[in-house]
Design a protein around this nucleic acid. Structure first.
Lengths: 210, 210, 210, 210
DNA sequence: CATGAATGAGCTTTCATTCAT
DNA sequence: CATGAATGAAAGCTCATTCAT
């Protein structure tokens, strides 16, 4: 899973650093605690001062890693989405791609989760997720509606729901089992989103409780 | 939404503190950054030293707030789940309950999200979420399978997926619109989970990419 | 030489700190090198964190000390200037006061000198010196011209020249001898400024070399 | 005002560096803050590592600049002092020379002032000032006493006082007006030192306050 | 020779927590 | 009981200097 080394406005990061950083990312990202610059330094073997030579702050380092991971996600999800099959095939592939990605980058993915609610990085991260996951899924859904495969539905909600469901389940598995049983999880998730859970699809009515 | 003031091992927290803390929770929780003891103190008007008189650490204060919110969630979701309707009715009610809860406690909910990956609080939080959301949903699903309303399925995955989907979509709305259009979101989410997105439910096969 | 503890916009500084700081000032100020917060802490026995509790930055600590010293200077010089004697008596007294002050606060005075060319403190320091020394001297000179004791002259230049001369000579003595022979120096300085160095005062002409 | 490129124990500094450094000196010297190696590098356009190739430390670079400036001072003051006029003419010329020098090198002069109290450079600087200013003035004063032009007086104090007065007034003007009105200042200073400020020179007595 | 890259050492500042009243 | 004051233990960042080409 090669990191595409995106620029974030700082000095072009040399390949050797990129390699060390991404290699070490999972180990320091999964300390389950605030990541300290020293953690990054120790885990990657890059002296703190050297990191500061290439990045202008700790946040830049994290942003760099997150953007790298998101870029990777984008690539693999886009690939899955483009695989010219049916709507269902493409959707299933996208789910698998995201799960594979989670399984491959557990630490950084967690870092990403921890940063969803932090320090001004949100816009960039949100954009990254939108590019990497939402956009392809929106495309698949929209294609599916066009060709009559899918029922008309709230694309925005469904897309976000799919992302949330896949990510949450993936994390749940990672935390519980240290790994993800991609086959089982992907099947179950696809099945829910594709066919729903009801045995019978007779129209029902949602209650408005308020 | 009264906070049930659970004990976490510290001396009984006086009502006045509980009031001030929960009232202020949203303001300091949404600083979108690491919450510092001083933030809590300033937002709640309770001097730092006084907080330390009642709690034994910052984590205890956060845990107290999170548990309070989770207890509230538990109450309202349990209520929704117990409302003796059909499986679909109960499920829809649970989704609404969680969305209402998110809308009512955006700050603390975010705090909770930000703390999913932090400082040893995870087990307690996970337990709280399990009690508050997963358990009732599992019950509903299991009931539904028993009475033939639901297709046999991977209850564990579905439950987690539902939680992730509802929460993620809820946050997405909060961040984008500052509020949640509960009706629209609840309908859309219920519809996906209940019936799926496919127009036609002809059996399909999931590809195994690996 | 009591420090009048002026406020600089930060937390009111407790007397005990003021005492420790001013007592230690000379020792850390005379390291002849950049003063580090740790020097101040060690010399004064006040923990670094405590200093940061009372002051908002290292510069604030230095500013506080400088202002204190300048306030002291102001008091003693004003006293000397007010001593209702003749113009010459008052001027001589002011010179002595400034030399005494230098001798009593060598370290902080040096700190002041080192800071004349640094970090935005200049305006405040300049104001302090103006209040403490220039203003009284200007008053004496102006009084002297009014009562016919002094020849008409460029008060601004003379005042600054006197300050520069007294301070420079004082420092020179401090550095060379570790102390100031106040009697000798004061006499010599007063004599130059009062009578000049020429044996004969026959009018002369200054050459314009360019 | 050509910099005579004195050696300070480092390899011979190439002319191109000398040019760039002295040209840039005023700009980085007037940052009014601690001069960092990077400031010097940026202001002069000479890469930091190149500076280290030619000088062995930051202090060497500063010393080089200061000594250059002091050498210039020495040349022009010596010239003024030697101009075979009367004592008063020579003294006036020296005052003008120092003021001209200040006006021509405000930044480096300030750097010099700021470094009077710093890092081990003091002895060299003091020696430079002594050679450049004090020695010629001492000579003039001593000549004047020999030929009966001057009253007997404390040559050491007067010399230092003159230097302090001229320098301080010069800086004062630079800071206040961005330039020095050399004519006015030189006249006023010479007048004070030559004739004193008293209208009447009737003998007076200095009070001994202690 | 010259210089972009790298880094050891150390600085200022922050913050959770404890103390003393 | 409650709290203003105090502080130990890091954390983030800077900078003079050295390395490697």
């Amino acid at each position: 899973m090669t990191n595409s080394a995106p620029e974030v406005g700082m000095r072009r990061v040399p390949a050797s650093l990129v390699a060390k950083l991404t290699a070490a990312a999972d180990s320091f990202a999964s300390t389950f605690d605030d990541v300290r610059m020293d953690d990054i330094a120790k885990a990657s073997g890059i002296p703190r001062a050297t990191l500061y030579y290439h990045f202008s702050s700790k946040n830049e380092v994290l942003a760099f890693l997150l953007q790298g991971v998101l870029a990777d996600l984008r690539v693999s999800v886009a690939l899955a989405a483009r695989s010219g099959g049916t709507t269902s095939t493409r959707l299933a592939a996208v789910i698998r791609a995201q799960l594979d990605h989670l399984a491959a980058n557990p630490g950084v993915a967690q870092l990403l989760l921890a940063n969803l609610g932090k320090g001004g990085r949100l816009p960039a991260i949100a954009a990254g997720i939108d590019n990497g996951f939402h956009a392809p899924v929106r495309q698949i859904l929209s294609d599916g509606m066009d060709d009559g495969t899918l029922a008309a539905a709230d694309i925005e909600v469904i897309t976000t729901a799919l992302f949330g469901a896949v990510t949450t389940v993936g994390f749940q598995w990672l935390i519980a089992d240290r790994r993800i049983d991609v086959d089982r999880v992907a099947d179950a998730l696809f099945s829910v989103f594709w066919s729903g859970i009801a045995l019978d699809r007779t129209p029902h009515t949602t209650l408005r409780t308020r």
